[in-house]
Design a protein around this nucleic acid. Structure first.
Length: 798
DNA sequence: CACTTTCCCATTTTT
DNA sequence: TGGGAAAGTG
């Protein structure tokens, strides 16, 4: 063993035997099966810290890949706390972030312009729509969304147009569109998310010296959430560790951490099978299971274990805890979705009251989970009426807001005038007399000349042409004027000269948009300060690469195991070429859409889908809407894989809870304007009776009836007033109609409130009743306003 | 070009 | 039912 282990032992101190074994594995491929709450991130970061502090590797030899920016950031923060090491120098990031970094470093080899821009999903869709219009593709037969899905799917499987076998006319058309789309992107100098991955994969695959260089460099490749990798990501990882023919390269080790039971992203291309493939293709000798759970009481874990045991073909894992049984899992059946929501709110009041006696649950430690976003509405209404502060996850993120995207489009045009997607977004925004007609003509001209819209402008004539010319001139002038300005100044100039600010000043809801635009300038400034810009996007300078651990203050005597290949020097390291701050910021904006958790400081109940709850934990968790057809979703019940994924989803939901878990469902639910009569989810019958406590009498379950789980029986609608054949004793008492009780909005004069648009304010007066109730509120920043309580979202500030 | 009307859709989400 | 996007109107 390494003598340095002793020196590193503080790192290993608080690990259990399995965790310690994982952290100290030899430099060989390994698969860590990490159950929910088993300290997965901890193992991952400690592994890196251990490798560094025992001198087995230098920072430049580490690559750690995650799926989300959040996870990458957390890893860097925790690592930085463990060791005095420059975490920025390491290749820690998301798949896409690392691919971006790689492509920026080798943009010539990748045949990309140096400041290529990244299309997000929206941009991609509009690019495809534009393409389809240009080639007169029938949007009825080929919806743009479907084309987008097809193209992304191909890329995720590593397929170029020529690799796709088309067996019918439709497929041929789609492949043709894929081909045209690629040409368009290349012409415009933009890449979509899939392209980032695919292109870097291909570059490594086809360029041997380059591949060998990186293979020698990254001796340790660590992967988080391995069960979520798609085909291409798997191939991408493999190319770092092996020759394309499958010959293993001596010396580097892939350390994959994942949990097959938490694989819930098959719908977007994730392949759990990658775990088994990994073991086979990499001849994995080291598999370690982390089954000790540090999060939940055993009643909760027993429920999770029992449920997931109904899935076939698992890699096999059982969570255990040293904590006691804890409280039973509480189960509730409501007559209506509204009643379910009201019960939930009532229960939350108790939780708040319990705070005085027991350790207590802060509101932000309470989460309400649901299968689909549509379910949040009833719950939100109930919480709102009860005056309980809450926060909903999901929805528009900062960089996805329309006004932000407009501003970014101008900025992108400064960097790259050929970016037609950006050109079209703002050519007539704010309006400057360039109509659809003019744009069509311009597009025809550009197609005929085979050039970008920008370049086609000079060929246009007439008054329309004059307007276009003015637009292009304006952008060109802005480009010159911003030449030597700081990023903040650039953005401020563009906001002003583009007319965006002026335009929104005139708009009724424009004030908020202007605030967002101002925030964009601030965000850019802090980006420059924090990142020292470009650091994110550029390959590491060579001196850092060859830096010995000694200069990191670590084990001076240990020889480096990862000498970079002498015959290859990373290009940017030589020239010191860096990306402009603007370009780096635009990349940042595309790769990190910004969190949507504004006002995170408030103590509010957390509402989110089960999917977005993955990776989080709360003291109290409500899992709602446990109904056949909803959870499991009827859309996924066609095949067994779909059902098993739903079960894993439920497993994820259950294992979010630390102390108290509620599971609820409703007999009826309003969906798409119609009342649906649902049967409680089959998942109830897969939970252990001993861990449950029914708060309402347990009715005859669907599985107990004579019907079994045939497809399509999950839920039904009442036809007319009749009712269906099987709505017997279960529905003997008609569901309680929606109560029209006076909604207690919980507001009164003098109360401090929060409004999502206007911010904080004070209630001056209330008038009207029920749906007509209005409140006069004096906002700190927006003056006095009347707000209809049925519409406005006012949250009491605590 | 702004505003209104109609129509269509409707798990899950990150990059 | 209700939101967003496309089509229609002054």
């Amino acid at each position: 063993m390494f003598p340095e282990v002793d020196a590193a032992s503080p790192l290993l101190q608080n690990l259990n035997p399995e965790q310690r074994a994982a952290v100290t594995l030899p430099n060989e491929h390994a698969l860590i099966l990490a159950g929910a709450g088993s300290g997965k991130t901890r193992v991952l970061t400690t592994r890196i810290a251990w490798l560094l502090s025992t001198g087995q590797i230098s920072p430049g030899g580490v690559m750690a890949v995650t799926f989300t920016n959040k996870a990458a950031k957390e890893m860097m923060t925790r690592l930085g706390a463990m060791l005095p090491v420059n975490v920025r120098g390491m290749w820690i990031g998301t798949f896409h972030g690392l691919c971006n970094r790689f492509l920026r470093a080798h943009y010539q080899l990748a045949t990309l312009p140096q400041s290529f821009q990244i299309l997000d999903t929206q941009d991609q869709l509009s690019a495809i729509k534009r393409l389809m219009k240009q080639f007169n593709v029938d949007e009825e037969r080929f919806p743009a969304k479907e084309t987008q899905w097809f193209i992304s799917g191909c890329k995720e499987d590593g397929l170029r147009p020529r690799d796709v076998a088309a067996r019918n006319e439709e497929d041929r058309k789609k492949v043709e569109l894929y081909q045209l789309y690629e040409e368009q992107c290349q012409r415009e100098g933009v890449v979509d998310f899939g392209e980032l991955m695919l292109r870097s994969y291909e570059l490594l695959r086809d360029n041997e010296p380059l591949r060998v260089h990186y293979q020698r460099r990254f001796r340790h490749i660590l992967v988080d959430e391995f069960q979520d990798t798609n085909r291409l990501q798997y191939a991408w990882l493999k190319i770092f560790a092996m020759s394309p023919d499958g010959t293993s390269t001596a010396g580097n080790a892939v350390f994959a951490v994942g949990d097959d039971d938490q694989s819930i992203y098959a719908f977007r291309g994730a392949r759990v099978g990658n775990m088994a493939d990994f073991v086979r293709e990499f001849h994995v000798q080291h598999q370690i299971k982390l089954e000790e759970n540090y999060r939940s009481y055993s009643n909760i874990l027993d429920s999770a274990n029992a449920l997931i045991s109904h899935n076939k073909g698992r890699l096999g894992k059982n969570l255990r805890t040293q904590q006691g049984p804890g409280e039973p899992v509480r189960v509730y059946e409501a007559p209506t979705d509204l009643a379910e929501a009201q019960w939930l709110v009532e229960e939350m009041r108790h939780l708040a009251r319990d705070q005085g006696t027991e350790p207590g649950f802060p509101r932000k430690e309470t989460a309400v989970l649901y299968r689909s976003n549509a379910q949040s509405r009833v719950i939100e209404t109930a919480l709102f009426n009860a005056g309980v502060p809450y926060r909903v996850y999901g929805g528009l993120r900062f960089f996805e807001r329309a006004e932000i995207k407009h501003a970014l489009a101008y900025l992108r045009l400064l960097e790259n005038p050929n970016d037609d997607t950006s050109f079209l977004r703002v050519v007539n925004f704010p309006p400057r007399g360039i109509g659809a007609r003019t744009i069509e003509q311009l597009q025809d001209a550009s197609r005929a000349a085979g050039c970008s819209l920008h370049d086609a402008v000079s060929a246009t004539t007439g008054k329309a042409g004059a307007n276009l010319g003015a637009f292009v001139a304006k952008v060109d002038v802005m480009r010159e004027q911003t030449q030597n300005l700081s990023l903040r100044e650039i953005i401020e100039l563009v906001l002003e000269h583009s007319g965006l600010i002026e335009h929104y000043k005139a708009e009724r809801e424009g004030a908020e948009r202007i605030e967002n635009l101002e925030e964009l300038a601030s965000a850019a400034e802090s980006f420059v300060m924090q990142e020292g810009f470009g650091r994110d996007a550029v390959a590491m300078p060579v001196d850092e690469l060859s830096q010995s651990p000694a200069s990191q203050g670590l084990n001076p005597d240990q020889p480096l195991l990862n000498e970079p290949a002498p015959d290859y020097v990373e290009p940017d390291a030589e020239t010191g070429e860096t990306l402009s701050p603007l370009s780096a910021f635009l990349t940042h904006a595309a790769l990190e859409s910004g969190d949507n958790q504004a006002q995170a400081g408030q103590d509010a109940v957390q509402l989110m889908t089960v999917h977005s709850a993955k990776g989080l934990e709360f003291d109290v968790v409500f899992v709602t809407g446990l109904e056949e057809g909803l959870f499991p979703s009827e859309r996924s019940m066609a095949d067994m894989d779909g059902l098993e994924e739903e079960r894993r989803l439920m497993y994820v939901a259950i294992t979010r809870a630390r102390k108290r878990l509620y599971i609820s469902h409703s007999q009826t639910r309003l969906l798409h304007g119609q009342t649906r009569y649902n049967v409680r989810s089959r998942f109830y019958d897969e939970l252990p009776e001993h861990a449950l406590k029914w708060l309402t009498p347990k009715n005859q379950g669907f599985s107990g009836s004579a019907f079994g789980y045939g497809g399509g029986y999950g839920s039904t609608r009442l036809s007319g007033a009749g009712g269906t054949s099987w709505s017997s004793e279960k529905y003997a008492s008609p569901p309680v109609p929606a109560q029209k009780a006076a909604p207690s909005h919980g507001l009164k004069a003098g109360l401090q409130v929060f409004h999502t648009k206007f911010g904080e304010g004070t209630v001056l007066s209330i008038e009207g009743q029920g749906d007509d109730a209005r409140a006069q509120v004096k906002f700190n920043r927006h003056g006095i306003k009347w707000l209809a309580l049925a519409v406005a979202k006012l949250t009491p500030v605590t």
